[in-house]
Design a protein around this nucleic acid. Structure first.
Lengths: 372, 372
DNA sequence: TTGTAGGCGTTATCAC
DNA sequence: GTGATAACGCCTACAA
């Protein structure tokens, strides 16, 4: 009886709705209406709010209502409109991911991991890529517009930019960038320490004359790696290395080793700002310059990207635990979104040394069994 | 005079609004209000519509109003809410990009290009990645929800799935997948032809005994390349190749060549489903099996990803014109979005043969100057 | 459990 | 050029 009454009132609504929504006064521009929860409600003989509840996980709906609604929804191909939902819930379930230089081999790996972790948490990735880190400003404007729930940024941000995230109360996790002195949530690998570690290992093996093929000057990661290595070499009282700058690409590695050799002869070891440059350096040294690596020259890189592990290279390098870093970034961001803030946290991961076979890592005499 | 009256009526509104929007009946859950166009209007002393118009490119606003509004907006850090906008305009300015296996080296390059082209057209990328192409179904549900303006999908779609795009009038461009018999807008490289071309080139050089390290069975691209090669070999009356299957990764190339050699001895040539497998095959053949490439064995791949061009490899391969394909995909999608459909179009790009140095491409006698 | 009603923040329409 | 007003499609107290 009550059910009948309900159905009837619903039917009244159903009859009236078309007039409400597309009656005489209906704007002529609206070419085609979308299927909305009202349509579903009409077909199912329930109220619109009932439909809404059916699509909300923990809502209280009777079995029969649920079934009727779902059947109607399926019949109409109804899917809730995320824009409308986010308007009222203030949750878009979108996360902005800002990443530079997808050409860099390291970044695709990071992006793949991040994307997966974010999806696993029921959120979508709004992707922003940039050619140069300086493009970030324009991207931020987009981010504010799109009502994302948070952002993971793999680019250097200025103090003002970080502050704007705070002002807008938008959870932010900085990925792989150490914003010194800023209280920002960040997930990173200690690049400075990585640089020091590599220098230490090579110096311990007796290398004295170093070359460095550094990454671009506007890359904080490149700068930290270079500084870490340089300062460690200095601490150890070794002569200052020959430093050239590259663009993180293969050609830069090739060019770099040529320049270094031209400038001061073949050094004992070359530290490259990333693996791809190290591979370029290695290929050029061996195949063009005819230098024995690691016999005469040691070459090392950073990142442990996939090709560094290929048989032709087996590069001595430092791995960033990308998987764990992506996991941490997603976790951190999620908790920030849920809890609406908290104190800034820096999760630093230690780089992992990969021995490889492109660097001599023991003193020369011990390394060569023939000399023993 | 008129201006004063306007300002006054605005002020009335301004005074009333707070009551409307967060008065007694205001829900207690709403923790913090956002800055809206009403706030800007209030501060600037204009109506909310005026503010809205100021943020719409081609709208008619007086200089002075515009200036006042912009100043107020800047002061309040106001940015229009894209969700609200898309609700009424039915335009989100978001494009879904669905892509599989970011680990595949080819895909990051494609994604980078796509992302750039889409951004250049004033749209954002909503990224969906998947481990297996079969995950696409779940992703589609997300796509419907998020009101994207269109989608670029680099995955195989079933007829039903394509049909659903049509039913929802959602512009779709299929990237790098040939959905035979379906009338879908697509941008692709002729993989079948690429397979044939490679087989022809190798056969022309006198290779007779072939091995194939194919890509995974669920990958249409892999299947087409393999079929193209196989059918061409058959046409030419050559013996059936030894075929093994891999996963498009380096290890599969290594394993593949071992299997092929174990099964039927060293063949004349091995065609690999993509470059990374070809590189694995190459490394293993040369360094583990001690086979002279290209002297004794020719190796070729597909895609011309960056590492294929490195000195250590200089792979014989087929390039897909990724840049142009991304351009075409973005153009096609954009025009579909603007024009609301049209007839299905297939833009097919020809693969470009990269000679490289891992395959002997002239008959053996002519190739060897000593034999002449 | 269910329906009613109000609001999320914007754009579009239409008088003025 | 400008301001009221009605959507857009949904969520959510609140009352029943």
């Amino acid at each position: 009886m009550a059910e009948l009454a309900a159905a009837q009132s619903v039917n009244n609504m159903a009859l009236e709705r078309p007039i409400d929504r597309q009656g005489v006064a209906r704007p002529s521009v609206r070419s085609e209406r979308r299927v909305t929860s009202y349509d579903v409600a009409m077909l199912a003989g329930v109220s619109q709010s009932a439909v809404s509840r059916c699509f909300k996980p923990g809502a209280s709906v009777s079995k029969s209502t649920y079934a009727r609604v779902m059947k109607a929804a399926a019949g109409l191909d109804y899917i809730p409109n995320a824009a409308a939902r986010s308007l009222i819930t203030r949750r878009s379930n979108m996360v902005a991911v800002v990443i530079s230089q997808l050409a860099n081999l390291y970044y695709p790996e990071a992006l793949a991991e991040l994307s997966q972790q974010i999806a696993r948490r029921g959120k979508r990735v709004l992707l922003f890529t940039m050619q140069h880190e300086s493009d970030v400003e324009a991207i931020l404007a987009d981010i504010w517009q799109y009502q994302v729930d948070g952002a993971i940024v793999a680019a250097a941000l200025t103090d003002a930019q970080v502050e704007e995230f705070e002002r807008r109360r938008l959870p932010l996790v900085v990925f792989n960038r150490n914003l010194r002195g800023q209280s920002v949530n960040s997930v990173l690998c200690d690049q400075y320490e990585a640089g020091r570690l590599l220098a230490s290992k090579l110096a311990a093996a007796g290398h004295r004359r170093f070359g460095i093929i550094a990454g671009p000057a506007d890359s904080p990661v490149a700068t930290e790696r270079r500084n870490g290595a340089c300062e460690r070499l200095q601490e150890l009282g070794l002569p200052p290395p020959v430093i050239v700058t590259g663009q993180f690409d293969y050609a830069s590695g090739v060019l770099g080793v040529r320049q270094i050799v031209a400038q001061g002869g073949v050094p004992d070891a070359i530290i490259c700002g990333n693996d791809v440059m190290a591979i370029g350096c290695l290929d050029c040294a061996r195949q063009e310059l005819g230098i024995d690596v690691p016999g005469r020259l040691s070459v090392a890189g950073f990142d442990a990207v996939e090709p560094s592990n290929w048989l032709s290279y087996n590069l001595t390098t430092l791995r960033q635990p990308i998987h764990n870093m992506a996991l941490a970034a997603a976790d951190l961001l999620t908790s920030l979104i849920e809890s609406h803030g908290g104190t800034a946290e820096k999760r630093t991961f230690a780089p992992q040394f990969i021995t490889g076979a492109t660097a001599r890592l023991v003193p020369a005499t011990a390394a060569d069994p023939l000399a023993a």
